[in-house]
């Protein structure tokens, strides 16, 4: 199964400032048009940005939502395969259909520690705009997403089992960094 990390989302109260930072420092470009703003309305000036490979959603922080890193997303070649693995090996994991206006993914789920991720497949109906395109190469790009866990090996096994991610021998050990 082909899996690609394709999406990261941050909740912020400072969309303009954050978008400008990532565009200025890391060369990101806008790839979708329209996101909800602080008024709760659809704002065509906002949009997801990208480094050419991974889309970045700067989501408006609304009341009751914590600011900061919110979720990330995978694109896979067969969502049904992922769902079968989740059902078979991790039946307690909750799976939800994503909201129709979300431009990246069709499915939302979570890992055993509660980190949420989207699962997308290119042919899904709601995948649109920049997320449907092949992207571009640029010198600065997102290279990793890091999470913390009380038992890293158990969490890593989840991503290996479900998404087929591979351990990087030169970086990893069995306890402190996987």
């Amino acid at each position: 199964m082909e899996t690609r990390i394709k999406h990261v989302a941050i909740c912020t109260e400072n969309y303009d400032r954050m978008a400008e930072f990532y565009k200025t420092v890391f060369g990101m470009k806008k790839i979708t048009n329209g996101m909800t703003d602080a008024t709760g309305n659809y704002n065509p000036e906002r949009g997801h940005i990208s480094d050419g490979l991974i889309g970045y959603a700067l989501l408006q922080r609304q009341p009751g939502i914590t600011a900061g890193l919110d979720h990330f997303g995978f694109e896979v070649d067969d969502v049904s395969d992922v769902l079968e693995k989740l059902a078979e090996k991790y039946p307690d994991i909750l799976v939800s259909k994503t909201l129709d206006y979300v431009p990246f993914a069709g499915i939302r789920a979570h890992d055993p520690t509660g980190n949420q991720f989207d699962i997308s497949q290119n042919q899904m109906a709601n995948v649109r705009e920049g997320y449907k395109e092949s992207g571009w190469e640029q010198p600065r790009r997102l290279s990793h997403i890091a999470m913390r866990a009380i038992t890293p090996a158990r969490l890593a096994k989840f991503y290996q089992d479900v998404f087929g991610l591979e351990k990087v021998e030169k970086l990893s050990d069995s306890e402190n960094f996987i």
Binding site: I5, L53, I54, S143, H144, A146, A149, N176
Partner: peptide, 9 residues
């Protein structure tokens, strides 16, 4: 292409 890293609490 990209990494997903798990670090200990």
């Amino acid at each position: 292409v990209a990494y997903l890293a798990v670090m200990p609490c």
